[in-house]
């Protein structure tokens, strides 16, 4: 706060960023009808554009569809596909399916959690990694399975987790 000019500078880009969210949202919304049925398609489209659902976007969608904000939030949190925080640059998905479980999937998950310091559904504070789980990845033969950015890694072990995620991360 010492130099007010600096304070002003840091404000400018923030305003700029908000404005583009606003504009891009308007663009998306303009192709939809103001109809409650459109809520999920809109949320999907917005998530596609931003990688997650920013709070301002949810508010705007609520306003657009004339729905209470709490209702939009309820729907967003009901479906696993929607994210409330931006996803990390790398997406780690650990399988929780039966086959993987039997072969130690839980241990793999715990190791990833420990290593990244986040729980499923969360993103590391440096936005490097996001962690998610799936029910079955359909690669049971390779169990336990972990997927890094669409690349399936089979027969995981805790050592392989450390190797994949590097040592120094987060």
């Amino acid at each position: 706060m010492a130099n007010p000019l600096v304070a002003e500078d840091t404000q400018a880009p923030v305003l700029g960023r908000e404005a583009t969210i606003e504009e891009r949202l308007n663009g998306i919304l303009s192709s939809y009808q103001r109809n409650e049925d459109q809520l999920i398609p809109i949320l999907q489209q917005v998530q596609l554009a931003f990688g997650y659902l920013p709070e301002t976007a949810m508010r705007k969608i609520a306003k657009f569809l004339n729905l209470p904000e709490s209702t939009v939030f309820g729907v967003v949190t009901f479906y696993a596909q929607f994210r409330l925080v931006p996803s990390g640059r790398n997406m780690i998905t650990v399988c929780r399916g039966t086959a993987c479980h039997v072969r130690g999937g839980a241990r793999i998950l715990r190791e990833v959690e420990k290593h990244l310091g986040v729980k499923p559904g969360e993103t590391t504070s440096d936005f490097e990694y996001s962690l998610e789980t799936v029910a079955c990845f359909g690669a049971c033969a390779l169990a336990p399975v972990m997927v890094v950015n669409d690349k399936v890694q089979g027969r995981m072990s805790t050592a392989k987790v450390r190797e994949t995620l590097g040592n120094g991360s987060s």
Binding site: E69, G74, F78
Partner: peptide
């Protein structure tokens, strides 16, 4: 007719 709360999460 406020809509402050709703059921959320699953």
């Amino acid at each position: 007719v406020v809509g402050a709360i709703d059921l959320a999460f699953r």
